[in-house]
């Protein structure tokens, strides 16, 4: 019935009690999971608003963003309330983790990330002399960021009554922007700012934020999300083979990511828009 001998059985039995994570492992991973979930939630509006930025009017854009929040925002408050409850400031949290150092050595990543140490300079045009493709701030196609924050906050506040928020599934939820959010985690803050740039139609500014992210966090906890935002931003700022290649690298490296659809859609839209408005293939850019 069982072909295992006594030695094998005793070894396997021992493994059942010996292989548990430490308490620090549990807490560190939980923190990272919630951080990533929050970022994914925040990103759920990016492609909607930014993807249509070229073609739709300002009013439509605001409405789309507001509606998205109205639909998805219900589950957000419980998540954020929970996070505020459990999450210590990220810097001190990390410093307190005995195994935090494990993440820092340049060991191969679980996700087959192909990002070099300084991806912004190579893969994405950022600011500065190394990135000739990046337009200066003045060349941004959009005049200024929209005050979406206020509107979104109002919508969430109106829609999310306590009984609903406590029960709504927190799947793919859009976090309610709040002062607590910025203090939650510096990684999340930078990515959120980049998302806001995308939402406001400022992809080059988003790329600069991501360069800042790379400088500060390297391959951080939210690296996958950072790469997705980077691909979307690049597709919007400089549609062409380099942007497509970066999007494809992301899609290959993280095929399970919930952001796959957004990256694909943003990059397809940007290609189509470039062709439609320029009447030329966007590949001519250096």
């Amino acid at each position: 019935m069982n072909d295992l001998g006594p030695e094998a059985r005793s070894m396997l039995e021992a493994a059942r009690s010996a292989g548990a994570p430490t308490r620090a492992d549990r807490e560190r991973i939980k923190h990272a999971v919630l951080l990533r979930v929050a970022t994914l939630g925040a990103m759920s509006t990016v492609s909607t608003a930014a993807g249509g930025a070229v073609a739709i009017t300002l009013a439509t854009k605001v409405t789309v963003a507001a509606l998205t929040v109205a639909v998805l925002g219900g589950g957000s408050v419980s998540l954020w309330a929970w996070k505020a409850h459990m999450a210590p400031p990220a810097a001190s949290f990390r410093a307190a983790q005995p195994h935090a150092a494990r993440r820092t050595p340049p060991a191969p990543a679980a996700r087959p990330v192909v990002v070099p140490e300084a991806p912004a300079a190579v893969e994405e045009p950022g600011p500065g002399p190394l990135a000739p493709e990046a337009p200066a701030a003045g060349e941004e196609p959009r005049p200024k960021p929209l005050p979406l924050e206020v509107r979104r906050r109002e919508v969430v506040r109106n829609e999310a009554r306590p009984t609903e928020t406590a029960s709504a599934p927190v799947v793919e939820s859009v976090p309610a922007p709040s002062p607590a959010l910025d203090s939650l985690d510096p990684e999340l803050t930078v990515l959120r700012q980049a998302q806001e740039d995308l939402r406001a139609g400022l992809p080059a500014q988003a790329l600069r934020r991501l360069a800042e992210y790379d400088r500060r966090f390297g391959k951080g906890t939210l690296n996958e999300e950072r790469r997705a935002i980077g691909a979307i931003a690049l597709c919007q700022a400089h549609p062409g083979p380099a942007a497509q290649a970066q999007a494809e690298r992301f899609l290959r490296a993280a095929p399970q990511s919930p952001l796959v659809g957004r990256v694909r859609s943003a990059c397809q839209k940007s290609e189509e828009n470039a062709k439609q408005f320029n009447g030329i293939e966007p590949d001519r850019e250096p």
């Binding site: 994570p21 492992d25 560190r28 991973i29 939980k30 990272a32 999971v33 919630l34 990533r36 979930v37 994914l40 494990r102 993440r103 050595p105 060991a107 191969p108 990543a109 679980a110 996700r111 927190v170 799947v171 793919e172 906890t221 399970q256 919930p258």
Partner: peptide, 17 residues
């Protein structure tokens, strides 16, 4: 072991979603 965090995280991000 060096990849454990990433893989376990991935599992629970999907679980959450």
């Amino acid at each position: 072991l060096a990849d454990m965090d990433d893989v376990v995280q991935e599992v629970f991000v999907i679980v959450h979603r």
